[in-house]
Design a binder for these strands. Structure first.
Length: 271
DNA sequence: TTTTTTTCCTGACAGC
DNA sequence: TGCTGTCAGGAAAAAA
């Protein structure tokens, strides 16, 4: 499930493979991912620049922007020709002859095309997306104000992309573990220092993951094309029943807001 | 207005 | 072996 680090890795890798190529032809086998109308807007457009906002991939073309969300399992592959593999739903023939293929087992990913605007954040796709975790204009007081006015648990607030964009279920658990905060803690009970810690560790953990993704991806590129998968050092997520790396207490799994949530009851204090 | 629930989709896995 | 049921997950839409 790609979160900001995986999305960045995919983007960086794709940039090196398709920059300045144009789209000559598109084949779509599962229409909900890319509408006919949007498909037509992409023909003859060149991939000019690449950017990321939260978990969204942004491709700046000549006249339009293509915005892609991989959701859980979306992947891009650069292949030599079209193929009819079961889970490949969109294929784009590029000017260099290669085919950019979009693979998505659960068909949850989406692609949207918009007319260009000066400020990327004003694109309709980002109407409900807050500042990216690494946005320099984002500071902990902004998080404090958002959290302070809410009764929702901090785990849920971290996953709310309208407050801060880029964090998914895995990293949310890891961030709260580092901050020693019980994921059930209500937003309004968090202190300014808690928010400061959350922003610090969010950036620390995601930056580390991006670095790992960037190094591991190279070994996959030749055979598999482009994926955002890499080994990640997880301290609590999916560690149910295993000892906490800090205190040895057994890691527990509960459900918060329909999301599997892992944490250490001893290290992480409830507020 | 804010929060919760449902929906989308399929592979993996548990239990019979 | 083969069948049925449950679960996971991001975000939009619907419901509360």
């Amino acid at each position: 499930m790609p979160e900001a680090p995986e999305v960045q890795t995919v983007l960086d890798t794709l940039a090196g493979m398709i920059k300045d190529q144009s789209i000559e032809e598109i084949r779509v086998s599962y229409r909900p991912i890319l509408s006919k109308e949007d498909e037509e807007k992409l023909i003859d457009q060149h991939f000019r620049s690449f950017y990321r906002i939260g978990k969204y991939l942004g491709f700046e073309m000549d006249d339009v922007d293509l915005i892609v969300h991989l959701r859980m399992e979306g992947k891009f592959y650069v292949q030599d020709d079209y193929c009819d593999e079961k889970h490949i739903h969109v294929q784009m023939r590029l000017s260099n002859g290669k085919v950019l293929a979009y693979h998505d087992t659960r068909k949850f990913g989406r692609m949207n095309v918009y007319e260009k605007v000066c400020d990327k954040h004003s694109l309709p796709a980002f109407a409900h997306v807050g500042k990216d975790v690494f946005d320099e204009e984002l500071d902990y007081m902004e998080l404090y104000h958002a959290f302070h006015g809410s009764k929702r648990p901090i785990k849920t607030l971290l996953l709310d992309q309208s407050i801060m964009a880029g964090i998914g279920n895995i990293y949310a658990d890891e961030i709260l573990f580092r901050c020693k905060l019980d994921p059930r803690s209500k937003g309004y009970r968090l202190s300014k220092q808690d928010c400061k810690n959350i922003l610090y560790y969010a950036r620390y953990i995601l930056a580390g993951a991006m670095k790992a993704g960037g190094t591991t991806i190279r070994s996959y590129t030749s055979s598999l094309g482009v994926t955002g998968r890499f080994q990640l050092e997880l301290r609590v997520h999916q560690q149910k029943g295993l000892p906490c790396p800090v205190c040895g207490q057994t890691i527990e799994k509960i459900s918060i807001g329909q999301r599997g949530t892992y944490f250490c009851k001893k290290c992480q204090k409830r507020k």
